[in-house]
């Protein structure tokens, strides 16, 4: 059981308060939706969590371990996985290879073993690829794309591969940045089932999405950001009734 805590998190980009005073928790086994208009600071919160940028105020902790102040790869090694809104796969690696890199954190094969043809290294490689195929199947990447370079995969498959690669690290925390972008309703329904099944494996999941039916159907709780501030949080039903939320969304739509 782990849980992610945001405590009064703030970040300032040269005078722009991209986040301020953000506090909420994501507990393992739960899916927390993070919603808000464009530019509200959702991706920035994921970047703060994963050490891409350091918060200028407050702290992020995983159980009792502080995440803020650590570097990106150190946070990843603690079991914090993410997907990227602007897909960031390893372009010239195949789908399977991408997932194998995702498993870096949990690999235990002896590093010098390959030089002396240690059978354990070979076995580990076979197991890694086996697991990669299982994950690709689970997220729904078609089998005939598994050996394809990521850069030439269809957009939808690339999004799924992002999720498979993140799952490969056996994360304690999974941060999904708009995984449903570009999916049709049937695909979105499949994604909803997938996210629920991930949470059931005791992962703390944060889902950043603009697709409201998906958020409302998937999440245990929802947090709403607007101009970097948390304007509401609660169950999906509570949040969708909240006047401040309605106001933020209508306001932003009117402005567009």
């Amino acid at each position: 059981m782990s849980s992610l805590h945001y405590h009064d998190v703030g970040i300032n980009f040269g005078g722009v308060h991209a986040l301020s005073g953000v506090s909420f928790d994501v507990r393992s086994g739960h899916v927390v939706g993070l919603i808000g208009p464009n530019g509200a600071g959702k991706t920035t919160l994921i970047n703060v969590t994963t050490g891409v940028v350091a918060p200028t105020a407050g702290s992020v902790t995983l159980d009792d371990a502080p995440l803020s102040g650590r570097r990106q790869h150190q946070i990843a090694r603690l079991g914090v996985a993410r997907t990227y809104q602007n897909i960031r796969l390893f372009p010239r690696m195949t789908a399977i290879e991408n997932v194998v890199v995702g498993a870096t954190r949990i690999r235990r094969d002896p590093d010098l073993g390959a030089f002396v043809f240690l059978p354990a290294v070979r076995r580990a490689r076979i197991e890694l690829e086996e697991h990669a195929r299982y994950l690709l199947h689970r997220v729904g990447v078609p089998r005939d794309e598994w050996e394809t370079a990521a850069s030439v995969m269809p957009y939808g498959s690339q999004r799924r591969l992002e999720v498979a690669r993140a799952l490969a690290m056996r994360p304690r925390v999974l941060l999904l940045d708009e995984p449903a972008a570009g999916m049709n309703p049937a695909e979105t329904a499949g994604l909803q089932a997938l996210i629920r099944s991930i949470a059931e494996e005791d992962v703390a999941v944060m889902l950043v999405e603009h697709d409201m039916p998906l958020v409302m159907g998937t999440c245990d709780r929802v947090a709403v950001l607007n101009f970097g501030e948390l304007i509401a949080q609660g169950t999906p039903a509570e949040v969708s009734r909240d006047p401040a939320v309605v106001e933020a969304y209508l306001g932003s739509e009117a402005a567009q």
């Binding site: 994963t50 891409v52 570097r71 990106q72 790869h73 990843a76 090694r77 996985a81 993410r82 990227y84 960031r88 796969l89 390893f90 372009p91 010239r92 690696m93 194998v100 890199v101 995702g102 870096t104 954190r105 690999r107 094969d109 590093d111 010098l112 073993g113 390959a114 030089f115 290294v121 490689r125 690669r165 690290m169």
Partner: peptide, 29 residues
């Protein structure tokens, strides 16, 4: 030849492909 099959070899390839993405999987670029 063997380096490519080690964890270090995978880390090298991942950093070449995208060092930020590599870092988010526990590799120190």
């Amino acid at each position: 030849w063997r380096l490519r099959r080690t964890r270090a070899g995978w880390a090298i390839a991942a950093v070449r492909e995208d060092e930020y993405a590599a870092a988010s999987f526990g590799i120190d670029p």
